[in-house]
């Protein structure tokens, strides 16, 4: 579904991604992990076309993304921090987003109702709290029933009830055979929502395989313990790391 090939990205002198290769297949759910500043958000923004890679190409459904913008209608994206035009009302925001994808008429408004956003549609965006913005971002990501869902720290800032609503929604979507990519630092959540782990360190893929495989390789029963030992290894720059890279 998504194929990232030989991506290089520099911000000035800082090399964020270096000869980065990765495949995302439909029907799978991926946990994208790595310490802060490891290039997760940059990678997501490159897939979305918001950040332009210095070198390399991303292919979505066998088409290069630098050629046409139409692939973005396949993607539902929930940003880490949702930033929206301040002056407009929430209902105008939803109307505008629907207007941007005129061919997709089959809306999924389940989250709007579940989060109670339909009650506050007349509120201006600048009056909303951080958590409510996060709910708006989530509702927008699912609105068009996209084939690819990219969620950048989806539950950060949400209250426990909303977290459960969102998790249930993500699991439903996953079951329906769509591609889900999630970044998060909450490991229990990732274990619940995804079946495939990708660990990035300093712009390189350190681990890319199923969660079951991760537990086996590290010899740890619990997911969090397995990730912890993965982090330890990558921080020590262990030369044996290549063994893990067999996906």
């Amino acid at each position: 579904m998504i194929s990232i090939q030989h991506i290089h990205k520099n911000f000035g002198k800082l090399k964020v991604l270096e000869d980065f290769n990765l495949e995302f297949k439909s029907g799978k759910s991926y946990a994208l992990m790595g310490p802060n500043g490891s290039g997760k958000t940059t990678l997501i923004k490159i897939i979305l076309g918001m950040v332009i890679p210095t070198q390399g190409e991303v292919w979505v459904k066998d088409k290069p993304i630098s050629q046409s913008e139409s692939y973005r209608s396949l993607i539902g994206y929930m940003p880490q921090i949702g930033r929206y035009p301040e002056n407009i009302k929430m209902k105008q925001l939803f109307a505008m987003m629907k207007d941007m994808r005129p061919t997709q008429k089959d809306y999924d408004e389940e989250l709007i109702e579940a989060f109670g956003l339909n009650m506050i549609m007349d509120k201006a965006m600048h009056t909303l709290s951080g958590g409510t913005r996060q709910k708006v971002s989530a509702a927008l990501a699912f609105l068009f029933r996209p084939e690819i869902l990219i969620l950048d720290e989806p539950t950060a800032g949400l209250d426990p009830i909303s977290v459960e609503i969102l998790k249930t929604k993500i699991m439903q979507t996953r079951e329906s055979g769509k591609l889900v990519i999630i970044t998060s630092h909450i490991l229990s959540e990732l274990e619940e929502l995804t079946n495939h782990a990708i660990y990035i360190h300093e712009g390189k893929v350190v681990f890319n395989d199923s969660i079951a495989e991760l537990k086996e390789i590290t010899g740890k029963e619990r997911f969090s313990a397995a990730i912890a030992s993965l982090m330890e290894w990558s921080l020590k720059k262990n030369p044996d790391l290549k063994i893990l890279n067999h996906a």
Binding site: L48, M50, E69, Y71, P79, R83, Y84, P85, E86, M97
Partner: peptide
């Protein structure tokens, strides 16, 4: 001031 709008639109299927 309109950077939010720009960022929002860039993730949509519209040309840069």
């Amino acid at each position: 001031n309109n950077l939010e709008f720009t960022e929002l639109m860039l993730a949509q299927p519209v040309k840069r």
